[in-house]
């Protein structure tokens, strides 16, 4: 029974990983159709680290301000302190399983962090960086 449960767990998490990979590929394809690509994880990482002056807060912020320096660990919201679960799909298979959610958060977070929308190229680079974590 124990072995059976283990097999089911492994199978389910493998399926989740496949699901998020398919969703990410679908998004990348959409960005390509908007004229972006090829995508580069190193550029994505550079974007991830890039600091920007957040005027309302009066300090420099980047993605790690809320998601934390280590993507495999939970971060915490810069203002409310609310725990934000790990973003790395290798430790959190629930990430990137929903295209609408990905776009919603790019919309909110690019605007908050850099004061503008991200381009299709930037989103593709960042997703390529994140999916390998």
């Amino acid at each position: 029974m124990k072995r059976y449960m283990l097999a089911v767990t492994v199978l389910l998490s493998a399926q989740a990983a496949v699901a998020s990979e398919a969703v990410i590929q679908g998004q990348l394809e959409q960005y390509r159709s908007q004229g972006a690509g090829p995508f580069n994880a190193a550029n994505g990482e550079a974007m991830w680290q890039k600091q920007h002056m957040q005027e309302k807060l009066g300090k420099e912020v980047n993605c790690a301000s809320c998601h934390g320096a280590n993507l495999k660990e939970a971060g915490s919201h810069i203002k409310t302190g609310k725990r934000i679960e790990a973003l790395a799909p290798s430790v959190n298979p629930e990430r990137f399983g929903d295209a609408e959610k990905i776009e919603k958060w790019f919309g909110r977070n690019c605007t908050w962090t850099w004061g503008r929308e991200c381009t299709a190229q930037e989103k593709g680079d960042i997703l390529t960086f994140l999916k390998a974590q």
């Binding site: 203002k79 409310t80 302190g81 609310k82």
Partner: peptide, 11 residues
């Protein structure tokens, strides 16, 4: 740093 704000009830 583990709480940050009174908004963080759950902490």
């Amino acid at each position: 740093p583990q709480v940050k704000s009174f908004s963080n009830c759950l902490a």
